[in-house]
Design a protein around this nucleic acid. Structure first.
Lengths: 183, 183
DNA sequence: TTCCTAACCGACCGTTCGTTCAGTATGCAA
DNA sequence: TTGCATACTGAACGAACGGTCGGTTAGGAA
């Protein structure tokens, strides 16, 4: 999966995978039906982890904003724990049936996030001058963009990252009072 | 370039391109040296447009925050005007020299954004409890993530999108006073 | 010792890839 | 009418692709 992410799915040959694993191409075909099955397993792993977060949040008592913050925090943790698989998921374009299935599940996830944002607007916790669909896309666009540079175990940790994202997403970059005076 | 974005660079054959253009493969080779040159031209076009924004912002008088907002707004406009090329740029992984050159230029762009965020912290306009490098990556991660769903001329326009992004990025999703009371 | 099975190898298949090239049609300047 | 550049075609190239298959090896159960 790391190779898929570095070189792209189509740009990675079964020969490349075999070399990285230290076995022959044939050995891989003994364990999996083909290249696309490898991709499918990886996408399912990422999606299962993300949907598990949604299931847990549904059982959570608390306001919509608290549930949204919970999903954001847990999603960053999933990103940290399953980085190669989530990265692959975010690059899927839907050119095969396997990819289209993954895209359908991802759209369902996005839809559930949008509902959460809309609930936050209804309860008055989230500003209601924005389109909930656009706001939720931007929110998770920010979360998902971290796969481009975040590396587990290097630099800042997953919890710090999650806190920073929540800070920017919910309260913004602008400083409020107590700052340095104008010069 | 649209085909490259739909199917991926490696997943798109010269035959695919020729068919989409209504000519033969050979006709393409009469105009460009090869497949990689097509990619290089596209990446340069996107990068040139983004750096033009930086050049203009440098000549702008105003606070760091105002310059940052200006760059954000103009970047969204570039995204709108050059969507296929910017999308391609955001997916580059650096497996060839052409791609590595683009990645170097992109890192330079990111660095200039980070400096802008840092200047905003120094002037007290941007909250200083965040790492400027992380904050700027999140900011443009949000901007760049729009290539996944924003389509020019459909739904909300580029200016509305830019306004929404600025609203979320600078002031956050949380509502401030005047909202619906607790129930 | 025998036998079976999971794991794996190396050679090979048909297909498709990016690229090349000799040749052709068109149009314009001399 | 000639000559030459531009735009393009169709056939072909070697390389690399995903995938197959007949055989070999290692280890545990009977």
């Amino acid at each position: 999966m790391e190779l898929f992410n570095e070189q792209g799915y189509e740009g990675t040959s079964m020969e490349d995978l075999a070399r990285a694993l230290g076995v022959t191409k044939s050995a891989i075909y003994h364990h999996v039906p083909g290249k696309e099955a490898l991709l499918g397993q990886s996408l399912d792993r990422a999606l299962d982890a993300l949907f598990a977060v949604l299931e847990d949040s549904a059982g959570t008592t608390g306001s919509a904003m608290e549930r949204l913050e919970y999903v954001l925090l847990r999603s960053v943790r999933v990103l940290d724990a399953e980085l190669p698989h989530v990265t692959l998921l975010l690059r899927v374009r839907g050119n095969t049936e396997v990819e289209r299935r993954a895209l359908r599940r991802r759209r369902e996830f996005d839809h559930r996030i949008t509902e959460l944002v809309r609930a936050g607007m209804d309860s008055g916790e989230v500003r209601c001058d924005l389109d909930p669909a656009v706001a939720s896309r931007l929110l998770f666009g920010m979360v998902n963009s971290t796969v481009e540079w975040y590396r587990p175990g290097q630099g800042l940790g997953a919890e710090d990252l999650a806190r920073t994202i929540a800070a920017v997403a919910f309260d913004g970059l602008r400083s409020h009072g107590g700052g340095q005076p104008d010069r």
